[in-house]
Simulated scan of single mutants.
Amino acid sequence: MAGVKIVEGTFQVSGANLFTKSWLPEGGPTKAKLVMVHGFSDHVDRYYDFFPSLARRGVAVYGFDQRGWGRSVRAPSDRGRTGPTAVVLADIAAFARSRVLPAEPAAAPVFVLGHSMGGGEVLTLAGTPEYRDLVARVRGWILEAPFLAFAPAVQPHWITVAGGRLAARVAPNFHLVRPVPPEHLTRDPAARRSIAADALLHNTGTLEGLAAMIDRAEALSAGRVALDPGVVRSVFLAHGTADVVTDIGAAEAWWRRQKLADGRFKAYEGFYHQLHADHGKEEFYRDVGDWILERCDDDTVRGGAPEAKL
C-alpha cells in the first residue's frame, strides 16, 4: 500500500486565485485520478481520512476551494461569491483540464466526485453540451448526497425562493447567512465540534450564488439538464437515508430516470449528509475506492441496477 504525499498550491482562473490541495500516492503507482468538488460552506480540508485513504490505494485526489469558500476567500466580500453557474462550471472544467485530465489514452483514468452542492455542479457539468469533450474523457462520476432538492425538513417556502431570485437580479452579491447546523451533517459528536469551530465555514452565500444552486437542482430534477448515456460512462450515487439537508427521495427519483449501462445507487442506512464524516464512514471510503479501482482493472462497461431500494 502506498504512502501519501500532500501538495498545496493555487490555481488561477478568470481573475480568481483559488487554493488547491492534492493527495498523491507515494511509493506506489497512480492507478486513477479523482477531481473533488466540495459543497456549500465547505472546503477541501473537511474530508477527514477520505482522500488519504484513496491515495494509499493508488488514487490521486485533486481538489480546490471554490470561489467564495475556504482558503480561496481573500476578503470578507469574497464569501459565498461563486458567480453564476457558467462561472462555476468553467472553474471546474479549467481545473480538470489543467491539472488532471490525461494527455494520452494510456494515462491513469480520471474520475470526478461532487458532494452536496458540488454534486449538483458536477452533474450539471456532465449534462452540459459545451463540455462534452471533457465529459467524454471522464471514466466515472461519484455523487455524495448531491443537491437535487432540499430535504423536506429544510425546504424553503416557494415565495422565499421566488423572492430571492428576483432580488438576485438587482443585488447579486448581497450576502445571506444560511447556517447548516452541525447536527444536521453528521452523528459524530467530535465531527460536529470540529465543524462548529472551523472559521472557514462561514455559511454565507450571495443571492446570485444561492439562486444558481437552486436553479441547477431544479433543472436536474426536471430533466432540463440530462446525462447523455453515450457520453457519461459510469455513475455511483451514494446517499444517507437519514439526510436532513438534501432529499434522498429526489436523488432516487433522478436515479430511476437514468439509462446508464454502468450505474450504482447505494443508500447508507442511518447516515446523515456527510457520509465522509459520519459514524461508519470507513464503509463509504471503501466503497468509493473499490468502485474506482474496479473500473481501472477492467475497463468494460457493466450492466447495473440500484444497489438499494428505498
Rank of each mutant, 00 (worst) to 15 (best):
A238Y: 02
A253C: 01
Y48M: 14
V59F: 10
D215V: 05
V35L: 15
A93W: 06
N203S: 11
G68C: 01
G70L: 03
S72D: 02
K266H: 13
P25N: 13
L134C: 06
A190H: 03
R97A: 15
H38G: 05
A94L: 11
E26Y: 09
K5C: 13
S221F: 00
A32H: 09
P52E: 12
R137I: 01
G80F: 13
R99D: 11
R56Y: 10
V37L: 11
L210C: 10
D78L: 12
R286C: 05
A153I: 03
F147D: 11
V59D: 11
V232D: 04
V170L: 12
W141S: 07
H115W: 14
S116E: 06
Q274W: 05
P129A: 13
E269C: 00
G70E: 02
T204F: 02
P181V: 05
F51E: 12
G303H: 12
M36D: 08
T85C: 05
T204Y: 07
V225D: 00
R233K: 13
I248H: 08
T186Y: 01
I6F: 07
E130F: 03
T186C: 01
H184D: 11
G240D: 14
G3H: 13
D78P: 11
F19M: 08
R79G: 01
T186L: 00
W291T: 15
R264Y: 12
V110L: 12
R165F: 08
L293C: 05
F111K: 15
P152F: 14
T241H: 01
E183K: 08
K21E: 03
G209K: 07
A2D: 14
F64C: 02
M213E: 11
P102S: 14
V154W: 00
A167R: 14
K281R: 15
H43R: 04
F64M: 13
S14Y: 05
E218I: 11
I6E: 15
E294I: 08
G163R: 12
G28A: 13
K5F: 10
R295F: 03
D287I: 09
R71W: 06
K281A: 09
F19N: 10
F284H: 13
A75W: 08
A238Q: 05
G240I: 06
R256Q: 14
W141E: 01
